[in-house]
Design a binder for these strands. Structure first.
Lengths: 190, 190
DNA sequence: TTAGGCATGTAAGGTGTTACATGATTGC
DNA sequence: GCAATCATGTAACACCTTACATGCCTAA
């Protein structure tokens, strides 16, 4: 159970479900995805438990916005979750499972195609992350050395994301090279 | 939907649900986890669809083993899944979400404690992966340069796992150092 | 006028976890 | 005798995805 806690964590300041979805995409996209259809019911549940407060504010376009914010009880629950220590060992990297099984794809040409596509996907995600960093840098003069606490920890996760993404892209390049050598596929024949 | 495909991929050679669980722990543990209570029903489902065959073999200890193996139809389904290209963007790293929210944990002492625990967890997982590598090396004289196709791709995933795990551990060290500097916590006072 | 962004949600179904249930054998 | 390993599963619940439903406002 983590999405409720993440929402709790993000709701230090008031935000709507729709806002939260955008925060996920921008800031947490490289390690967590959440759909609106999951966010909305979860927010209601957290409100029923008394961990969030709601107020309604009119919107300029579309239906009125429901702005949620963490209560003191909510803060306590969040703090307990964090204090329980890191939750590791539940990672699920589908694309890596696919590489693991790539000998079954039906020939080195297809395996190479797969790795090239994977490399492009990683390069794209890396570019998106770099755009997030560039945007942050230009929007906040305190970036990166004088951030407040909450920015400090978020910055640490961004740094890990950037280095993991770059390392994974480089690994893809290495795999591509190894496949070409192993099956004698010169680059011009790809 | 990926677990069915992964099971299909592993069932090139006959294995029981129990065997598969151990294969998960050893070989795929760094990027996928699966419980027996999920594996057993999934295998039955795959058999009903005609993607797996079963035969029963007596066991020396405990109930008789149900040995599953991929059919030709199963191979085709697996191949289609792989040919559809890499599935990216569904990663969920709970511990990284926790770091993202670490300013709410209630003081830098606790944040430091969290990062030290995370570092230890990563170091442990890295050691486990290195043990897998060492075992493979000593058990197969073809390791690492003369492996058959199926070992070749598995080796690529192991390499990525080793480098990611080491990089993440190093990032933890870096975070720990940054927290100490930021909050003026000398190492001897930890 | 139509596509896209804003903003809310529900329903159905698939995926995954935790707890429970059974029972034999091996090693301490 | 007790715990661990072998080996199978079921049931209840929690989590997540996909598809559907509604309706306003803005810009091309």
């Amino acid at each position: 159970m983590s999405l409720p806690h993440i929402l709790l964590g993000l709701l230090d300041e008031p935000a709507s479900g729709y806002d939260l979805k955008k925060i996920f995409e921008r800031a947490l996209g490289h390690f967590w995805a959440a759909e609106l259809s999951q966010i909305y019911p979860t927010l209601k549940q957290l409100e029923r438990r008394g961990w969030l407060d709601v107020r309604t504010a009119p919107s300029e376009k579309g239906p009125s916005r429901r702005l949620y914010q963490r209560t003191d009880t909510g803060t306590q629950v969040l703090c307990e979750w964090l204090t329980d220590g890191p939750e590791v060992g539940t990672e699920r990297l589908t694309w890596l499972a696919q590489v693991f099984l790539l000998s079954e794809i039906g020939g080195p040409g297809r395996a190479l195609r797969f790795m090239i596509d994977l490399r492009e996907a990683m390069a794209g995600r890396l570019a998106a992350l770099r755009a997030v960093e560039a945007h942050w840098q230009s929007a906040d003069p305190r970036y990166p050395d004088k951030l407040p606490d909450h920015g400090f920890y978020r910055h640490l996760t961004l740094q890990l994301g950037l280095s993991r993404m770059a390392a994974t892209r480089d690994w893809c390049d290495d795999c591509i090279a190894q496949i070409r050598v192993r099956y004698q596929m010169p680059e011009e024949a790809a």
